[in-house]
C-alpha cells in the first residue's frame, strides 16, 4: 500500500501576488486513496493551492509535496496528476473530439470506453467548437477528462459550473462507482457543499488563504450541532464554556445556537438542561466558520425577520 506517503503534504506554504497573500502559511496533509473536499469561499485560495500543487504556479515560501516530491516542473510527479479546472483554456478552434483524442496521450490509465460512456451520459456534442459550447457542456468536457483519465491524483476545481442537477448527480454517481473500482486520490473544490458532503472522506476548509479546518469528514459531522431551547437555559449552557458559538438566532423566548465542539460530555449536559440538539449539515458548519461569524451583529435580526416573513407567507397560503 501507498498510505505511507500522503498524496499531498504542504508545510508553511505561502503564495503572494504582489501585495496580496493568496495562501498564508498553509500546512495540510491529504491522505492517499481518499476523496477530499477543498472548501471555502470565492477567493479563499482554493484554486491557488491547486495551482501550486499541480505545478502550474510556484510557491513564494514553504513547501508543497505531491507523492513525496515537489511538483513544479517535475514530470515524474505531474504525469500522475489530472487537474480539471473551471477556467481551463483550449487551443483555438478545438472541439471536444480533439480534447478526447489528445488527453489520452497524457494519461496512461485513460479508459476510452469510459470516456465514450460519459460523453453519452452528459450528452456532449463532440463536433461543436469549444467556444460555442454552453457553460455546462464546457464543464462536462473537463469532468469527462478528469474521470476517464483515472490519474492517481485528480483535482476537480469547481468542475461543474453550469451543469444541471441531473448532470451533477451523474458526475457524483460515476465518480463514486469508478473510485470504488479504481481507488485513487481525488481533491474536489466546490461551493455545493451539501451535494458532495456524503462523498467526502476528508475535508480541508480554507478562508482568506489560511487553513481553518483539516480533518476527516466523519469527525466534522458529529462535532457541530444546533442547541435549541429557552433563551435562559441556552445562555446558561453556553456560559459553561465547553463549546464555541458560531451562530445565534432568537425568536421570542427561544434561542437556537450553532455550536462547534460537541462531545459526549457536552451532549449529556445539553440534554440534562432540557435543550434540544439537532445535527447541522457540513455546509452550515462551513458557512458559519467562513464568514457567517463576521456578521454576527446584523445576522440574527435579519434572519429572524426572514423567518417571520416565511411564516406569514406560509400562513397566507
Amino acid at each position: 500500500m501507498t498510505t505511507a506517503t500522503p498524496a499531498i503534504e504542504t508545510r508553511g506554504l505561502t503564495k503572494r501576488f504582489g501585495a496580496m497573500t493568496a495562501l498564508d502559511d498553509v500546512t495540510v496533509t491529504i491522505p492517499a486513496g481518499s476523496i477530499t473536499g477543498l472548501l471555502g469561499r470565492n477567493g479563499a485560495g482554493k484554486t491557488t493551492l491547486m495551482h501550486v500543487l499541480t505545478g502550474q504556479d510556484f510557491p513564494s515560501e514553504g513547501e508543497a509535496r505531491v507523492f513525496g516530491q515537489r511538483p513544479a516542473e517535475n514530470a515524474s510527479v505531474l504525469q500522475h496528476i489530472a487537474f480539471i479546472k473551471e477556467s481551463q483554456k483550449y487551443p483555438d478552434d478545438f472541439k471536444p473530439k480533439h480534447v478526447l483524442t489528445s488527453a489520452p496521450w497524457f494519461f496512461e490509465n485513460w479508459d476510452a470506453d469510459f470516456a465514450a460512456q460519459l460523453v453519452d451520459d452528459f450528452r456532449l456534442p463532440l463536433n461543436r467548437r469549444i467556444k460555442k459550447l454552453s457553460r455546462g457542456q464546457l464543464s462536462a468536457v473537463g469532468v469527462i477528462v478528469g474521470l476517464a483519465s483515472r490519474a492517481p491524483l485528480t483535482f476537480f476545481d469547481e468542475p461543474y459550473l453550469g451543469l444541471d442537477a441531473v448532470a451533477r448527480q451523474i458526475f457524483y454517481d460515476r465518480l463514486l462507482t469508478d473510485y470504488a473500482k479504481f481507488p485513487r486520490t481525488v481533491v474536489l473544490s466546490t461551493h455545493l457543499i451539501d451535494e458532495v458532503a456524503n462523498l467526502l472522506e476528508h475535508v480541508v476548509v480554507i478562508d482568506q488563504g489560511r487553513v481553518i479546518l483539516d480533518s476527516p469528514a466523519e469527525e466534522l459531522r458529529g462535532r457541530a450541532a444546533s442547541v435549541i431551547g429557552p433563551r435562559a437555559e441556552v445562555d446558561a449552557f453556553l456560559a459553561r464554556g465547553r463549546v464555541e458559538t458560531l451562530h445565534r438566532e432568537e425568536l421570542g423566548g427561544t434561542a437556537s445556537v450553532l455550536v462547534d465542539g460537541i462531545d459526549d460530555v457536552v451532549r449529556a449536559d445539553a440534554l440534562n438542561s432540557g435543550l434540544q440538539l439537532t445535527p447541522v449539515t457540513l455546509q452550515q458548519l462551513i458557512v458559519r466558520r467562513t464568514g457567517g461569524v463576521l456578521n454576527d451583529a446584523a445576522a440574527p435580526a435579519a434572519e429572524a425577520a426572514a423567518l417571520r416573513g416565511r411564516r406569514t407567507a406560509g400562513a397566507r397560503r
Binding site: 501507498t2 506517503t5 492517499a32 486513496g33 507523492f67 513525496g68 516530491q69 515524474s76 510527479v77 500522475h80 490509465n109 479508459d111 483515472r150 490519474a151 492517481p152 491524483l153 479504481f182 481507488p183 485513487r184 486520490t185
Partner: peptide
Amino acid sequence: MTAVGILEPGAR
C-alpha cells in the same frame, strides 16, 4: 523511484 509506488492506485 517513488514513481513505482504511486502508479499503484488506479493503475490498470
